[in-house]
């Protein structure tokens, strides 16, 4: 059992958790994730670790309540327990001194991008963090990103905050005005695909952090397989970061919908239960 030290909603249905997991905190590096199970009947889901503090043994997670499991998790409060936390899994991000690096985060993907921004900044890069959301309340972690020394460009789809429009528009501007060595992207699949499409003609090395469905997260099941340049690779052990110019994003998007109907039913049942509990 893993104790939640603190938890707070930071945006609608987006919750920040501080969880006691000393072994994970000890070994975690930017880019790595954990597999989590909320309770004994729960499914195993991957979640990127946003930060870890070795001294206190605490890891930071950001959870967007989309399906039953993430909504169930978001009902947990400080002092509650999570059944299982296993990790850190996946290969760490390749952090080097690239020069100018752009990190693009969309929605809760900003939480995935945050540790990469911090690590790149610490490694002496000039980092531009482009973070986007549907509207102002979905722009996450702006002050935290600024605290790393990165230049932050916030965008909203509806123009309610920062620069109006998609993150890709901001990315185009940065590319045209700066000498960008590398781009990292984390967020919804269409956003990552769009980022890859923007950087491809400029031949800028671009890394995407993929988010396929996983079960064990240790290479045993192959459920997370992705097509990268015509090769079938496992995101859990070969990734989760891959060359975005080689990733078959439509395949990833399609495979992520494999359980859509079942998940929809589970969510509806869960919400009905919650309503009964509340009444």
């Amino acid at each position: 059992m893993y104790r939640i030290i603190e938890s707070n909603f930071i945006a609608p249905e987006v919750k920040q958790f501080e969880v006691e997991a000393p072994r994970v905190a000890e070994h975690w590096q930017a880019g790595q994730f954990i597999i989590l199970r909320v309770d004994d009947d729960g499914e195993r889901i991957p979640l990127t670790v946003a930060a870890a503090d070795r001294d206190s043994g605490v890891i930071t997670l950001f959870v967007q309540g989309i399906g039953k499991t993430t909504r169930l998790l978001n009902r947990k409060k400080s002092g509650d327990f999570i059944a299982d936390v296993a990790g850190p899994l996946g290969k760490p991000s390749e952090i080097e001194r690239y020069g100018t690096a752009v990190v693009v985060g969309g929605g809760v993907g900003t939480a995935i991008a945050y540790p990469v921004v911090a690590a790149l900044s610490a490694a002496g890069n000039r980092v531009i963090a482009i973070v986007g959301g549907r509207s102002s309340e979905y722009v996450l972690l702006e002050p935290e990103l600024e605290a790393t020394g990165a230049e932050v460009v916030a965008c909203t789809d509806d123009g309610s905050y920062g620069r109006p429009g998609f993150v890709t528009e901001a990315l185009k501007d940065v590319i045209s005005s700066r000498d960008v060595s590398i781009v990292f992207a984390a967020g919804p699949v269409p956003m990552m695909k769009a980022v890859a499409d923007v950087t491809r003609p400029h031949e800028i090395k671009t890394i995407a952090s993929l988010n396929p469905i996983m079960v064990d997260g240790t290479g045993m099941c192959g459920g997370c397989r992705v097509d990268v340049g015509g090769n079938t690779l496992f995101a859990c052990v070969d990734g989760p970061e891959f060359d975005a110019h080689l990733v078959d994003f439509p395949l990833l998007a399609r495979r992520n919908q494999a359980y859509h109907d079942i998940e929809q039913r589970r969510l509806e049942d869960f919400e009905a239960e919650c309503r009964v509990e509340a009444s």
Binding site: V215, M220, C221, G223, R225, D227, L251, R255, A258
Partner: peptide, 14 residues
């Protein structure tokens, strides 16, 4: 082999 509906035995059984 990456179509939805193709499982490894490990995944299906797990």
């Amino acid at each position: 082999e990456n179509l939805i509906g193709v499982y490894s035995a490990n995944e299906f059984l797990t």
